[in-house]
Design a binder for these strands. Structure first.
Lengths: 193, 193
DNA sequence: GTCTATAGATCGATAGAC
DNA sequence: GTCTATCGATCTATAGAC
């Protein structure tokens, strides 16, 4: 608004910032790592993020949430064709997590004691994902309680697929597991039961 | 052997050690946290673990692996009654992970760049779990390829259940998801398909 | 607005008294 | 074998030159 250039650059640093956090976690990411990854000196970093590392992570979380909102959540909620929306979600998820070799930063954050400052956005992310997927399933004729249950299984399954495929170093496992969940979900909406 | 007391105390420190690592992760766990949790000074810690933090984590991983071997993997592999063995596994898992509020340290380690020194034990843990569960399913008459696939889904599902229930702060979700996997697995061995 | 320099705290690890 | 004291490195964050 007033200057117009500062905000642009701050948001331009977010992808690199997110990637460092994904590789090293919150505790494992140092400001020197961030400085190298973003190409910004500490002075610039604290100019963009006066709250330091915690504000950087908060900005990254908001950025991730905005991306998922546009690419995953909203399309699910407004899906005219539930089965197609589910297939589209799985395609987006597979690409986003790079077949499981890219970590889910939000899920990771929830694991440690460092989640305390971020507990609310972490919880909101997963609650929203489950609600959006359940809404899509209901749109496909699935009863509410079963829709929520299926959505919970799929969202948890995706997180587990990331953990497992990373641990095994096997991105094939991620793709296989995603396909299984897609089959189970689309099977429910086409009323195959 | 020679002294007989040192080794005992080292292994006695492992549970507290494991718990700190589970709460803070590898990077987030400092030696002062370890000292507080174990009640041992740094001198004693480096006497037990000359390799420092990395050796401590390695010892914890070996301890975890030994526990799972005895309580989960071996019973699965030698199960006379596959369905009962699966039910028993789920009971052990639910108790061990405290209904999902206790993190899986092995899965966590696989996420970050800090996994590099521990990549091999992490991979072995999951490969062994999947193999043991698949062997149990095959003992129940499930074909090899399907058994491996089901085992992969269940092990990934457990990891995902931990991530999700921690993020939501909802241990009910963990128990629900575990039940779903139990039903799917026991359904396969009783030949209900 | 971006850099370098540096403060102050804490890190992992070691040394030496006992 | 366990403690305290302390090393040098690195951490987050700040200050001040430009």
């Amino acid at each position: 608004m007033s200057k117009g250039r500062t905000l642009t650059e701050r948001s331009e640093a977010l992808p690199a910032l997110a990637e460092v956090f994904r590789e090293h976690g919150f505790e494992g990411t140092s400001l020197s790592l961030i400085s190298t990854a973003t190409g910004l000196g500490k002075g610039s970093l604290y100019n963009f993020f006066p709250g330091g590392k915690e504000e950087m992570m908060r900005a990254v979380l908001a950025d991730i949430d905005a991306w998922f909102d546009a690419a995953i959540f909203a399309p699910l909620e407004q899906a005219p064709d539930p089965a197609a929306a589910i297939a589209a979600m799985m395609r987006e998820v597979e690409a986003y997590f790079r077949s499981g070799q890219r970590v889910c930063l939000v899920g990771w954050l929830g694991l440690g004691a460092s989640r305390d400052p971020f507990g609310e956005p972490v919880k909101a992310y997963f609650a929203r994902w489950i609600a959006a997927l359940a809404a899509c399933l209901q749109g496909g004729g699935v009863a509410e309680s079963e829709a929520t249950r299926l959505a919970e299984q799929a969202v948890a399954g995706i997180q587990g697929a990331i953990v497992l495929s990373r641990a095994l170093g096997d991105d094939g496992a991620f793709v296989r597991l995603l396909r299984d969940h897609e089959t189970r979900l689309t099977g429910a909406v086409t009323g195959r039961r």
